[in-house]
Design a protein around this nucleic acid. Sequence first.
DNA 1: GGACACATCACTGTATACAATCCTGCATTC
DNA 2: GAATGCAGGATTGTATACAGTGATGTGTCC
Lengths: 235, 235
Amino acid sequence: MNHPSDQTTGAQKNSAAAERVTSALSLAIHEHRIAPGTKLGEDEVAEIFSVSRTVVRASLQALAHLQLVEIQRNRGAYVAKPSLREAREVFEARELLEPRTARSAAERAGPEDIDLLKRHITEEHAALDASDQGRALRLSGQFHIAISRIADQTTIAGFIEALIARSSLIIALYWRRESALCEKFAHHDLVDAIADRDGERAEELMRSHLVDLHSALDLDDRPVAPQSLKDALKP
Amino acid sequence: MNHPSDQTTGAQKNSAAAERVTSALSLAIHEHRIAPGTKLGEDEVAEIFSVSRTVVRASLQALAHLQLVEIQRNRGAYVAKPSLREAREVFEARELLEPRTARSAAERAGPEDIDLLKRHITEEHAALDASDQGRALRLSGQFHIAISRIADQTTIAGFIEALIARSSLIIALYWRRESALCEKFAHHDLVDAIADRDGERAEELMRSHLVDLHSALDLDDRPVAPQSLKDALKP
DNA sequence: GGACACATCACTGTATACAATCCTGCATTC
DNA sequence: GAATGCAGGATTGTATACAGTGATGTGTCC
């Protein structure tokens, strides 16, 4: 059985070394150790991981497909900075897909699935207790992915995975300091509903959980980031 | 204004030459000129397009991400052969996403959007009259993509694009000879509903259209393809 | 005659070298 | 002093060469 924080995503497998680089970059982005907008120079990344640019390029392309990085032709790869509009779209899409997925998961979950989810939550708590925000955030995403996997719809699970990856960037950009990270209980209740095989309740819990998350973001129309003024005038 | 059959998909842009190769391969697959399961050797493709393997690899990777081709490590790239289960999942996902998208499209469509859709249909008819099955099929897919673009949800539009790409493979594998290609009228009615700004009707038409499509496929559990016996015994 | 082991071959994986493009800084000019 | 043009450097795009892996076919042994 896999450890809950295993990160073999459903994404397209790259070959050998490329996958290692992709995972490492993806992890760092998910844990907010690389900020949106950061340039990922090929030589730079290549040296860090002791591989050639060929491998790095494959990784960056894979990440670009997940929209975690943006590749500008002849200019290089940058960690993506989702716009307000994109941020809204991502959460709308999640609110469309995930509640239904949670329902399916509740209807299909076996004992080992429940176990997996519970271990997930344990890990989340541990990360929160250790004040490891980055890890907690990543695990929180993994929790959602785990549910979509249990729902046994790999196609939709893949979409959700991509949405959660982008959510991580969105949270990095638009999270309101004021709002607390109240996911602990939300996730716990969700697992309970799934363990009870109560699809209806799982669906509703997931929906409200996502609405909570959404409303904890600052997705109004006015400029948010300090550099947006400069950005707005440049092009 | 763009020509309706323009094919600048929302997918991640590859660099320069790679995009040309990706488009050409994608087109050939969509038009059923390359069968599922066909091997796409790097040298072979490289020579056909007069580029180096580097470029071909980038293209194949991009197509792999759309799940149009499957890359097996150290073994090469093959045009994907979606399983029955995957086929079902793809259509379930479409039935989940597209009706709602059609509703949004109806609510947002401007005159130029209606024009675009009408020109799409004209092209489809032309292809059908010319008995160009492959082109008709591709245009039919493009029609769905156009609607999702009008809905102005680029994130979901991207998902739908990927689903339609795979649908093309699924149709190649599981289409029943008996059932007629009845899309002409379905698409026509849909455009009418969108032109009337009747979201409700558009949603319902899209739903039934997809159900029709789904039921025109042979997605039962028994083996379908003639070579499946051989395949089943080999591994 | 069949099966296994091994060698050969074809192909993919990775690294590196070269070409093209873009950005930066400086000099020149008005 | 500001703006423009140009040159240098840095970075990405592409091609090619080498290394590693899997498949195929042959030969030998039982």
